[in-house]
Nucleic acid binder design. Structure first.
Lengths: 172, 172
DNA sequence: GGGAGATACTTAACATGTTAAGTGAATGCG
DNA sequence: CGCATTCACTTAACATGTTAAGTATCTCCC
């Protein structure tokens, strides 16, 4: 019961490597996950004090920036899936942080906007949020931060339209 | 009902900016989230075909690498919180993909290891997983990928020990 | 050696991620 | 016009993230 036979991960595709598959803790998804967690860990306590989750905060910020939007558009902006957004909007509406009304021209669409209360809440949260972001920027370095963001954007673009399956709406 | 009063986000901390708080879609957390999603989107279909979620796959990989581990250690390696890991291990054990046994010296600890079936499953998934990783590496560029990972690691390190609250177990 | 406190997990409760199905309202087209 | 499709969401169902409690063991120290 010592070694578990020869590494099952030593496939033809991985044969060029010396270790049994990328050290795993150094895989790209893990690196991204850990980096993001390190960042979010800074923000969560502050948000929590104001009774907001990360996603709820994303939605409020998105709404504050675009004045009013359809649910689908908001999902794209806040990078949330429809079902998640649906649930969250229901809660935010119950808390009177947002307003909704169905569009006049198309009863299927509903227009969402931030409410007065929502604006007040944002005003209460924004200062510490900005302070935290500033601290992160200072620690990591503004220049490097910009570089990092650029690379992340490149990565995203380089993978766009891979494994999509439906190439219908590729470029418009 | 036009503009929502003056930007509530225009706080002293943010006063230096021209826009009402960083464009939001360009915030660091969003960049990291989107980049990671772009990457994971490539892997999920393949994992799904084998009946595995991303997290389950992380656990199997971690176990394959370290032979056997306590739950806490595994949580650290696979970067999962205890409760999530607890649930997933219960399921993986029910599917006979892992083995567990309580440690002899300490009844609180349980040692987890990958089972023969688990190894077989890994062998089945690894090829396509490696192929996808290779494709990503090629698209983005191996050199840039290494740079990106380095920066992500730096970011993580630069934020380590910020907002922890309990500095007791800092280095040791 | 016995009880307070620390440990290693597990459960619980609530929120979101993810995929599939459902619903009601527009659209296109014969 | 009428009806099959498409659309914009919402529900449902299951898995994980996140924080707080709970449970069984262990450790330490008097």
């Amino acid at each position: 019961m010592a070694k578990k036979s020869t590494d099952p991960t030593n496939t033809s595709a991985a044969a060029a490597r010396q270790v049994p598959m990328r050290d795993f803790s150094r895989s790209l998804p893990m690196s991204l996950l850990r980096a993001r967690e390190a960042v979010m860990r800074q923000f969560r306590p502050s948000l929590r004090e104001h009774g907001l989750t990360e996603q709820q905060w994303r939605i409020l910020r998105a709404l504050a920036a675009i004045e009013a939007a359809e649910v689908t558009e908001l999902a794209r902006t806040a990078f949330l899936l429809g079902p998640s957004l649906s649930r969250i909007l229901r809660d935010l509406e119950a808390r009177n942080l947002i307003d909704r009304k169905t569009a006049k021209t198309d009863q299927r669409r509903s227009m969402v906007s931030i409410s007065k209360e929502g604006v007040k809440l944002m005003a209460a949260v924004a200062p510490s949020s900005e302070a935290i972001y500033a601290e992160i920027t200072q620690r990591f370095g503004a220049r490097k931060l910009a570089e990092l963001q650029e690379m992340l954007g490149e990565l995203e673009r380089s993978l766009a339209g891979l494994g999509a399956g439906d190439e219908a709406n590729a470029e418009e």
